[in-house]
């Protein structure tokens, strides 16, 4: 699964990270003003937020979890996040719209898309519209953390990442 999305979607301006070397890094440097990466996580499945929040907190990020796209967009309008993780398929507003909204608001923000399953067409569309990367369901928390670390790196922040043995 991981190899799949990497092949399909990796934007070429992002440096390739060797995943094996990455595990066990414990370096903290180049943080944002308040020292923390701010992540907004949007998925209409409550369990996704519930489980990913502690996973991301471990990275040292600040995490805000939303289930409703409307509320999330409202929050995005209020605050500029470093990273937005959004599901593509949702009932009221879909992830592509959220992506467009974020891109309009702040070019700097990295958007990571979650798709139900790897749909080439949607992935291409998302990448064209400026998404940083995407991840296909089902994924492990570690998979997302790796992408978040990459995104942070692209923002010039090195996140500490302590993998459980």
């Amino acid at each position: 699964m991981r190899a799949g999305y990497r092949l399909m979607s990796r934007p070429y301006d992002v440096p390739i990270i060797f995943l094996d070397n990455f595990h066990g890094y414990n370096i903290v440097s180049m943080m944002t003003d308040d020292g923390k990466i701010e992540v907004l996580l949007l998925d209409d499945e409550p369990i996704v937020g519930k489980r990913l929040r502690p996973a991301l907190l471990k990275l040292g990020c600040e995490v805000e979890v939303f289930e409703s796209p409307k509320k999330a967009i409202k929050r995005i309008n209020e605050k500029e996040f470093d990273i937005v993780v959004t599901d593509i398929r949702m009932d009221e507003i879909d992830g592509i719209e959220v992506l467009e909204h974020v891109m309009n608001k702040s070019k700097r923000t990295k958007v990571i898309m979650i798709t139900g399953y790897a749909m080439m067409e949607l992935a291409r569309q998302a990448m064209e519209k400026g998404a940083f990367d995407f991840i296909a369901k089902p994924f492990k928390p570690e998979d997302l953390r790796i992408i978040i670390v990459k995104a942070a790196e692209a923002l010039g922040v090195k996140l500490s990442h302590a993998q459980q043995p």
Partner: peptide, 19 residues
């Protein structure tokens, strides 16, 4: 597509439980 949601939830939960 629909199946991916519960499977994803299970994956996430199981992994976090393990972790």
């Amino acid at each position: 597509h629909e199946l991916n949601n519960p499977i994803n939830n299970m994956t996430l939960t199981a992994h976090m439980l393990l972790e």
